[in-house]
Amino acid sequence: MRLTCTACGAHGSIEQFTADTDARRFMDMLLQLPAPVASQALRYTALFRPHKRGLTWDRACSVLGELAAMVKAGAVENYGRSIPASADAFASAMHSMLERRDALKLPLKNHGYLVSILVANAPGQAADREQQTEQQKRSDSQARHRQVESEAERMARMRAELQKAEANRMLRLGMK
């Protein structure tokens, strides 16, 4: 039976895949991932495949090992902050990347894009974005209120000037 690895593009018999130490190590790591992540991980690993050749098993193991470490930690590091991320969040982020594969600059060099998706979708980040949106709305509302207030002040000033001009006119008419 001849197989093609969807992650690295390698061709060979099933015996070749199971005889290679790194290939076995890759499969072992893949099977140890939580089910939602494992279902996306093989195709995600393929995003690291160079254009003109297959992804080496050693590189595939390295990519999968880094991914497994982040999933096991249940968090990603972003600018020194630890952002919690569940296995489902990882699976969803990888699925999102795979759906936009054509828009990605391939091959990927690291997990940076995956991390950025996880950070953007993190519950705390969503709350922060919501808070920023609400704060912006309040700020915009206050600015509009100040603008309306200054408009009202301007109208009051103009009204006072008109009344003064009218009083002066009446005085002049009464004096004649």
Rank of each mutant, 00 (worst) to 15 (best):
residue 141 S to C: 04
residue 174 G to C: 11
residue 23 A to E: 01
residue 77 E to V: 03
residue 158 M to Y: 13
residue 36 P to M: 03
residue 141 S to A: 10
residue 37 V to S: 06
residue 84 P to E: 14
residue 134 E to Q: 15
residue 51 H to V: 12
residue 68 A to I: 02
residue 125 Q to I: 04
residue 57 W to Y: 11
residue 32 Q to F: 04
residue 170 M to C: 09
residue 56 T to W: 07
residue 32 Q to S: 06
residue 73 A to Q: 13
residue 10 A to C: 08
residue 80 G to P: 06
residue 126 A to G: 05
residue 108 L to A: 10
residue 173 L to D: 14
residue 152 A to S: 12
residue 174 G to R: 14
residue 102 D to K: 08
residue 43 R to W: 07
residue 74 G to Q: 06
residue 17 F to N: 13
residue 6 T to D: 08
residue 105 K to I: 00
residue 39 S to R: 11
residue 115 V to P: 01
residue 86 S to R: 04
residue 2 R to W: 12
residue 82 S to L: 12
residue 126 A to V: 06
residue 159 R to H: 08
residue 74 G to H: 08
residue 9 G to A: 10
residue 106 L to F: 07
residue 80 G to Y: 04
residue 90 F to A: 10
residue 113 Y to D: 04
residue 58 D to F: 10
residue 33 L to D: 00
residue 82 S to V: 03
residue 92 S to L: 09
residue 27 M to H: 02
residue 152 A to D: 11
residue 18 T to E: 05
residue 3 L to W: 13
residue 18 T to Y: 09
residue 157 R to T: 02
residue 47 L to E: 07
residue 140 D to I: 15
residue 36 P to L: 00
residue 36 P to S: 02
residue 90 F to I: 13
residue 137 K to S: 02
residue 41 A to W: 03
residue 51 H to S: 15
residue 88 D to H: 06
residue 109 K to F: 07
residue 129 R to G: 05
residue 5 C to R: 04
residue 151 E to F: 12
residue 58 D to M: 11
residue 25 R to K: 15
residue 47 L to K: 05
residue 123 P to F: 00
residue 158 M to D: 10
residue 92 S to R: 13
residue 108 L to S: 03
residue 49 R to Q: 12
residue 11 H to G: 02
residue 24 R to A: 12
residue 80 G to L: 03
residue 33 L to N: 02
residue 53 R to Y: 00
residue 10 A to G: 03
residue 75 A to L: 04
residue 108 L to P: 03
residue 139 S to W: 05
residue 66 E to I: 01
residue 151 E to T: 04
residue 6 T to N: 05
residue 155 M to Q: 14
residue 101 R to H: 01
residue 140 D to G: 08
residue 109 K to S: 09
residue 98 L to K: 12
residue 124 G to A: 14
residue 109 K to R: 12
residue 152 A to V: 09
residue 89 A to R: 01
residue 1 M to H: 13
residue 154 R to M: 11
residue 151 E to D: 13
residue 94 M to W: 08
